[in-house]
C-alpha cells in the first residue's frame, strides 16, 4: 500500500449472508486463540470458528458454512455487532473471508472504526428492516444486493430501502479519504504545535 489517498468505496454489490443475534462480540467473530499471529494473513478461515465447528472440528449449522452463502459479500447482522475486544482481527477475518460491507441495526464503535480503516462500510437500519432483509436472503440467497454508500440506499432485487451511513464514514468512503495515516501526516507542523502547548509532553522539538 502506498502512502497516498485510498480508493473510494461508493457502492458494494454482491449477494448477502445473514448472521442473526444481538451482542455478537469479537471473541465470537475471531476467537482469541487464532490471534497468536503476527500478520492478519489467513484469518479468513477462522471467522466465527467456534460457531461453525464443534469440538471434533465437525461442521455445525452456521451461515458461514452454508453452501448457499459461499460467494456472499454483504453481511447482515442485528444489534451491537462487534462489541467486546477491540481486535481488528475481527473485521480483518471477515474481510478475508469475503465480506465487503455490513448492514446491521447497530455496531460497537471500535468495531465500526476498524471496519472503516479497512474500507468496509457499516450501514445501519431499524430492526424490522434488518429482519426482513435477513429473511429475504435466506429465502433467495442469490438475490443481488447493492449497498449505495453515497446515497444511503440498499437495493435488493430492484427494491430500494433507505439506510443510514454515519456522516464521517460516508465522506471518508465516498471521497476515498479513509486512509487516515496519509491525511494526518499532512499536518505534521500542527501536531508539533499542539504537543508544545501541552504541559505534560516531554519531547525534543
Amino acid at each position: 500500500m502506498s502512502d497516498g489517498p485510498a480508493e473510494p468505496v461508493r457502492e458494494v454489490r454482491g449477494t448477502g449472508i445473514p448472521v442473526r443475534g444481538n451482542d455478537i462480540d469479537t471473541d465470537q467473530i475471531i476467537p482469541a486463540r487464532f490471534m497468536k499471529v503476527v500478520t492478519f494473513d489467513g484469518l479468513g478461515e477462522f471467522a466465527f470458528f467456534d460457531q461453525r465447528f464443534d469440538e471434533h472440528d465437525e461442521q455445525q449449522d452456521h451461515p458461514f458454512n452454508d453452501e448457499r452463502f459461499q460467494g456472499a459479500n454483504v453481511l447482515v447482522v442485528n444489534a451491537n455487532f462487534g462489541c467486546g475486544s477491540s481486535r481488528e482481527h475481527a473485521p480483518q477475518a471477515l474481510q478475508r473471508w469475503g465480506i465487503d460491507a455490513i448492514i446491521g441495526e447497530s455496531f460497537a464503535s471500535i468495531f465500526a472504526g476498524n471496519c472503516l480503516a479497512l474500507g468496509i462500510p457499516t450501514v445501519t437500519t431499524d430492526e424490522e428492516t434488518v429482519t426482513e432483509l435477513q429473511d429475504r436472503i435466506e429465502a433467495r440467497p442469490d438475490a443481488e444486493i447493492a449497498v449505495d454508500v453515497e446515497n444511503e440506499i440498499i437495493t435488493v432485487d430492484g427494491e430500494t430501502i433507505t439506510v443510514t451511513v454515519d456522516d464521517a464514514q460516508r465522506r471518508a468512503l465516498v471521497e476515498g479519504v479513509w486512509d487516515t495515516t496519509a491525511l494526518m501526516r499532512a499536518n505534521t507542523d500542527a501536531v508539533r504545535d499542539v504537543a508544545a502547548n501541552l504541559p505534560y509532553v516531554e519531547v525534543d522539538p
Binding site: 492478519f40 477491540s86 481486535r87 481488528e88 482481527h89 473485521p91 480483518q92 471500535i110 472504526g113 476498524n114 480503516a117 479497512l118 487516515t180 495515516t181 494526518m184 501526516r185 499536518n187 505534521t188 501536531v191
Partner: peptide, 13 residues
C-alpha cells in the same frame, strides 16, 4: 481502545 490500523496511525503521526 483503538484498532490496529489506528495503531499504525499513532505510530506514524
Amino acid at each position: 481502545g483503538i484498532g490496529t490500523s489506528q495503531i499504525r496511525d499513532v505510530l506514524a503521526t
